[in-house]
Design a protein around this nucleic acid. Sequence first.
DNA 1: ATCCGGCGAA
DNA 2: TTCGCGGGAT
Length: 214
Amino acid sequence: MNFSRAVVEIYSILYDYFGPQHWWPAESPFETIIGAILTQAVSWRNVEKAIDNLREANLLKPSAIKKIQQDRLADLIKPAGYYNMKAKKLKSFVDFLYNNYAGHLNKMFKVDLPVLRKELLDVYGVGPETADSILLYAGKYPIFVIDAYTKRILSRIGYIPDDIVYHDLQAKIMSVYPADVVKYNEYHALLVILAKEYCKKSAPDCKNCPIMEK
DNA sequence: ATCCGGCGAA
DNA sequence: TTCGCGGGAT
C-alpha cells in the first residue's frame, strides 16, 4: 500500500476505534494557545494543573498575562515544567499580540495563513508544532500538526524514515487531504491518543494496536 | 548535543 | 530510582 492510501486507511481505523476527539480541550482560543505553549515536551496531565492555576487566578486572557509579573506567572505554571522558560514564552506571545494586533486574537486570526505562520515562528518559544497547533486549533486554519508521535507511529509502521523533517512529513500528509480543517483536527488528535495508549516509546503494545494488521 | 523541570507510572 | 512526557532555544 502506498503512503497516501495508508494515511486514509489509518484515519478511518482510528476514527472508528477511538471516536471523534473534539480537540482542542479548552474554553477559548486564548486558552488553547496557552495550552499549546505549556504542553511542549510535557504530559497534558501536568498542563491541566497549570491551566487550573491560571484559571483560578483569572489569568486566562491576554490582558491579565500582560500585567502579571513573569516570576509570579512562572510560579503558577510550575506543574507544567520548564516554568521559567514557559513564563517567558507566554509573555513573549502576549507581547507579540499587543504589539501587532492590539491584544486581540480576532484581529490576529484575520491574517492569511502563510503570513501569520511566519509571524508566529518569529515569536520566542513558538516553533513549528506550536505555531501549527495555534493556527489549526485556535484559528481554524487548514494546517496539519506534526509531532513526535506522528513521526513515531508512521515510522514504526514503515511508511516514513524516522529522521524525516517536520515540513516534509507535513507536506506529505497535507497532500492526501488538501485544506481540510476537520480532518486535520481529528487526525492529529487521534494519533496522539494512539501513541499514548499503544504506540508508546518503550514497551509499545503492538499486539493490541488497532492499526496493526492481524 | 544540551539545557530546561515537575509529575506520575514503571 | 529511572523514564517519558501533545518542543524549542542555544
